[in-house]
Design a protein around this nucleic acid. Structure first.
Lengths: 210, 210
DNA sequence: CATGTATTGCCAATTATATCACAATCCGGG
DNA sequence: CCCGGATTGTGATATAATTGGCAATACATG
């Protein structure tokens, strides 16, 4: 199992996790691929195949135990270990990420925000301090930082990434609307809000019944 | 041409648009599929095939005219017509969307935010008013609203969607971390920030060289 | 205006992804 | 403890997406 997992499967994993959490919260203890498929708008076959990339978590004639499966998928997603984040840019997006309620439940802990604007530096969001961008290097070298979130203007994003690499950060969650260049041993996942909105626009322009 | 365009192509279109805009800004007037492919990390073949879904915009022995191609793709994406947005939820995400700089350039115009918290209602973000959620129905019935952005807590999202449908809105850009039920003639595009961060976590947990 | 070169458009081949079908097997009830 | 009904795990098949290859053709040059 887990020989090679395709991108398509990885994209669906968080969806499984989300639905399983909801089912667990609703008190459902077991579910079949049939039922889960109806819920998620996927075929039962696809669900069984996806889950089987990682091993046989189900039981014939019964289905999957919700709590077990959620646990396994959480582990596969790496949510059992804590991730320490810093956020570059304390604007709306940076603050939104810092305060997003579900992240902390999933092991993502924001330890600091960074900004250049003097009126933002020194404040706190909850218990997260907003530090000056000039102190970034020292901070990163003296603290464990697993992920850096880029929530700053496009023009500063590439330079910030280059510095972060130099200081040792190897994973980036990027909100700047640009495809940043990065070394092979650095992971970059883009959010690209604009792309998502443009997809909606495309579908509106091309839907059959207007 | 344009018989049926696959999801995979639609997902890539905004990327083409973004890169073409950058090229145009950089003063590049023409580009080959080869060069564009290197820039975007796609094969030249794929680029030619993608673009050909919509017609032959290129010229043999020469490549594509950047401005022309950008214009065509903008049109295909529906960016030539204005879209009027309302945003439900004036928290960090709602405000981030309202003030996101590139949206207005692409024809997306936010005309109002809605919230239930009294201390937010009555203020403005730039020239966009924050109105009380109770006035949503009246507002939507009296104004043209093309897209509603859901930037409110998960527990309120489904109900909000149902109301919006009733009032006549037929396109939703959803930031709530839930897969909302919706009628067939309503378009819903999800952002699901958590999914994106979990994908990063997955890749961190499974990368070869730690 | 003729010629060589670069590059598209497009069809074929390959690879990836999703679905189907069914044997293996586990649960629950009697 | 055994049997019936349900549901998984999985190999085979179908469908979709990507890449390769090449003829057609437009541009640039002299």
């Amino acid at each position: 199992m887990a020989g090679h997992v395709s991108d398509a499967v990885i994209r669906r994993l968080p969806g499984y996790y989300r639905h399983l959490r909801e089912l667990e919260a609703a008190g459902v203890t077991a579910i079949s691929s049939q039922e889960l498929g109806e819920r998620m708008h996927l075929t039962p076959s696809q669900i069984r195949q996806d889950i089987n990339c990682f091993g046989g978590f189900g039981r014939q004639g019964y289905g999957y135990k919700v709590a077990d499966l959620k646990g396994h998928i959480g582990e596969i997603l790496g949510l059992t270990q804590e991730h320490r984040l810093i956020i570059l840019g304390a604007g709306n997006i940076g603050c939104a990420v810092a305060q997003y309620p579900t992240f902390s439940r999933e092991g993502f802990r924001t330890i600091a925000l960074f900004d250049t604007q003097e009126n933002k530096v020194g404040r706190c969001l909850g218990d997260i301090p907003v530090l000056h961008m000039d102190t970034l290097e020292t901070f990163v070298r003296e603290n464990v930082v697993d992920i850096a979130v880029l929530a700053l203007p496009k023009r500063n994003a590439q330079e910030a990434l280059d510095h972060l690499y130099e200081y040792g950060v190897r994973a980036i969650w990027n909100f700047a609307p640009a495809d940043l260049n990065h070394p092979d041993d650095m992971l970059v996942v883009n959010v690209h809000l604009s792309d998502s909105l443009q997809q909606l626009s495309y579908r509106m322009a091309h839907r059959e019944h207007p």
